[in-house]
Simulated scan of single mutants.
Amino acid sequence: MNRRRLQRYLVLSAVAAATVSLAGCVVEPPRTRVEYREVKVVQAPPAPLVEAVPPAPYPDSYWIAGHWKWENNRYVWNNGHWEQSRQNMVFQHAYWNNEGGQWIFHPGRWVQINNTYSAPPVVINVAPPPPRVEIIAPAPSPNHVWIGGYWRWNNGQHEWVNGHWEARRDGYFWAPGHWVRNGNSWSFSGGFWQRY
């Protein structure tokens, strides 16, 4: 074997050995630590802004409404956006709550659906249309929650139920009605008030 071939053989052998030794390794990406800092403000938040909701990108899109956040000693609007719906989960929207004369911010988060109602689950093989774009009027007060519209399965077809404002219920949040794709079928989740 000449010298050049030997060098090439050694380099390839080293690469092969490194590949085999690292094949079983799993490199975990660095974890992003999200710190929740409790925010207490004396000034009440403004009523939610009217948002121009863009068309949904897919049938099982899930609208996460915007909210006010406290930044640099003032309220700043955080825009809403579409996300992919999650199986057996609902997004608990961010909200402000008056506790003892101070407004406390509760950030939004995905939570498990805890359906205490005894309604049978709705599972169909017909994809719903994408959620409609709704004109959301200004909230009657900061204590109101937007109940977004959704497609309801009724008599063998999808029928749109318009959104509306409702007064917030103490100890509950609105679990929005939405469709989730599960293989070739679609299941309906949410559409009720859920305990925190």
Rank of each mutant, 00 (worst) to 15 (best):
E99G: 01
E83M: 13
S21Y: 11
G66E: 01
W63E: 01
R168C: 14
W146M: 00
V145C: 08
S21N: 11
F192T: 03
Q84N: 07
V26N: 10
P128K: 09
W153S: 04
W146K: 00
V76H: 07
A17Y: 12
R3F: 12
S187W: 01
R109I: 11
F105Y: 14
P129V: 00
Y75I: 11
V11D: 08
V123W: 03
R3Q: 13
R168S: 15
V133T: 15
E35K: 09
R195K: 12
A17N: 07
V20F: 12
A56K: 04
E166S: 11
G80F: 03
N88R: 13
W160A: 02
I64G: 04
A52S: 14
N182L: 12
E99C: 10
R3E: 14
F91K: 05
E71L: 09
P30T: 14
I104A: 12
S61N: 06
A44M: 08
A139M: 07
N79Q: 09
P107F: 04
G171I: 13
E51R: 05
I136C: 02
S85P: 03
V145Q: 04
P131M: 01
A56G: 05
Q7R: 13
E83K: 10
R37Y: 01
K40H: 03
V111P: 00
R8D: 11
G80N: 08
A65M: 01
P140V: 08
S185Y: 14
A44I: 01
N78W: 10
V90A: 14
V161L: 00
P30G: 06
F192N: 09
R152H: 10
R3C: 11
R86V: 13
V27M: 07
T32F: 07
W70P: 00
P57S: 06
R132L: 12
W70H: 06
N155R: 14
Q84H: 11
G148E: 09
Y36M: 00
N125K: 04
I113D: 05
W103G: 05
A23V: 03
N73R: 12
H144E: 01
I136Y: 02
N125V: 00
G190L: 00
P57K: 06
A65W: 02
V42Y: 08
F192A: 07
A119Q: 15
P140S: 06
L10H: 10
W186L: 10
P176E: 15
A119K: 15
L22N: 06
V111G: 04
A47Y: 02
G190R: 04
Q102W: 13
P138Y: 07
R152M: 09
G100N: 15
Y9D: 10
W68K: 08
V42S: 15
R33L: 15
I147E: 13
H178R: 07
Y36P: 01
Y172R: 08
L49F: 00
Q43W: 11
N97H: 07
S118N: 15
W82L: 09
H106Y: 15
E99S: 15
A94E: 07
P176H: 11
R8L: 14
P107K: 03
G101N: 06
N97P: 02
A175E: 00
P45R: 01
T32H: 14
E35F: 04
N72P: 03
P30F: 06
D60I: 10
T116F: 10
A14I: 05
A127N: 02
P48G: 10
M89Y: 12
N114R: 15
A65Y: 06
R37L: 04
H93W: 05
W153Y: 02
